[in-house]
Amino acid sequence: MNLVKYAAKRVLRLIITLFIVSTIIFFVIRVIPGDPALIIGGVDAKPADLEAIRARLGTDRPLSTQYAEFLWSILHLDFGRSMISDEPVTSLILQRFPLTLALAVLGLLIGILIAVPLGVLSAVKRWSGWDYLGLVLSQLGMAIPSFWLGILLLLVLAIRFPIFPLFGVDSGAGLVLPALSLGLARAAILLRHTRASMIEELSKEYIVAARAKGLPETLIRYKHALKNALLPIITIAGIEFGYMLGGAIIVEQVFSLPGLGRLFLYAIYQRDFPLIQGGVVFIAVIFSVVNFVADMLYSIVNPKIRLE
């Protein structure tokens, strides 16, 4: 019952967020230089032709009219059609979404699977060889740009040793390298937080009490300390996941993947107003959903945190 009330509250907050976000993006893309009619017609287009294109796109009407119409249509979950391809924005996004989702999930999994065990190991064996190795790897992971890592992975694992395809995602194998280059970067960030969080928890008094109870050290680490240490890890992982769901522009470029990142990037290049607006609203929704899930996980991990 409480949960329903809580969910309703969150939905209301999401609607307010969406209103603000879509309003801002509506005006921002119209204020920045660049006219979709000019892009469609080309620089040589005659003024009359441009007028005709503007009339067709509806960009010749007053801003207030356009804005009212925009709000009215998103109220009906209609994001319009792409100015360039004339396809519905919703179906363009939904076509690209599965790939992006798969990449984000894989990237997050790789990140967590590397970062959490290594971070725990680093924290437990502080200032040991393992710890330094973890710290150096995470420093490297954060310093290396993902396009460079992507190219390197391609060079080694697709060209020198052709284990994975160079591009394309016809088989699942095509996802491995891009997910790896996304995941390694997440792992670098998550490892640091896991280590710091575990070190903090391991210094708490309840750890002394657990030892005084005669529990084995593994149980103390992986049950008592880790459950408490998960809180900041969930926060960071949630934020990272949200970003990845909005599309990974660089990784998609390097691996020539048709994900959301490139869709939105080209939409901005081409001043494809409806697609940009749809994309921004979509990302805002995704972020809210991911946050909601992270908050639910929070209350499971730490019962002290109540959903309010």
């Binding site: 008094e205 309840y206 009490a209 657990a210 005084a212 008592h224 459950k227 991990v301 730490n302 019962p303």
Partner: peptide
């Protein structure tokens, strides 16, 4: 040999 401590709030694990 068992032990109890000064501040039970800190010596009990909040997550269990």
């Amino acid at each position: 040999i068992a032990m109890i401590f000064q501040e039970p709030a800190k010596y009990l694990n909040p997550a269990f």
